[in-house]
């Protein structure tokens, strides 16, 4: 039996992010509730991280010729990323559970030896209360690090703090 190959940092990822189109998951003609997911990434000193690669994956809506389900954006000089996608609906959890609508996020970057995984849920969604992951986190401040907030029409903001005060909840997947 093999052992999974080791991760190494993506580094400053010079070329991986050159195709800016990847930040728009609707570019092949997807229709639905088009939203922007944006946020700023901060390091342990509270300084913005201008060189992070933010990848997202969502299993809903299902991938198709018009919707890749996967997107990628860099954080800019202010540490801010911006992705355009279709707002997901609820997806199956384990057993009979249902998961609230969410987008999986993987951060890759200089100074990250492996991908940092987290999720963006959507504030105000009634299913958040019964989502298995959200309801397993007792501290509302911690839970809040996984919940994007409305920031204008169709715009959802999730700031990500890598370390220290307000540190984002990361997931071991």
């Amino acid at each position: 039996m093999g052992i999974a190959t080791a991760s190494q940092t993506i580094g400053p990822y010079w070329h991986l992010i050159e195709d800016k189109d990847w930040a728009d998951l609707t570019r092949f003609g997807a229709t639905g509730d088009k939203i922007v997911l944006t946020g700023t990434i901060f390091d342990g000193d509270g300084k913005p991280c201008p060189d992070t690669c933010v990848e997202i994956w969502q299993s809903d809506p299902p991938t198709s010729d018009t919707f890749p389900g996967f997107g990628r954006a860099n954080s800019d000089a202010t540490g801010t990323f911006r992705l355009t996608t279709i707002k997901p609906g609820p997806v199956a959890g384990l057993g009979n559970a249902q998961q609230a609508p969410h987008i999986a996020i993987c951060l890759l970057g200089r100074g990250l030896m492996a991908g940092l995984v987290t999720r963006a849920y959507f504030a105000g969604d009634p299913l958040n209360a019964t989502d298995p992951l959200l309801s397993s986190i007792e501290d509302p401040a911690l839970r809040g690090t996984l919940i994007a907030v409305a920031d204008g029409p169709g715009v959802w903001r999730l700031d990500i703090r890598l370390q220290g005060d307000g540190e984002t909840v990361f997931l071991d997947v």
Partner: peptide
């Protein structure tokens, strides 16, 4: 300054 302090 970029590694999380809390366990995932």
């Amino acid at each position: 300054k970029r590694h999380p302090l809390r366990a995932p």
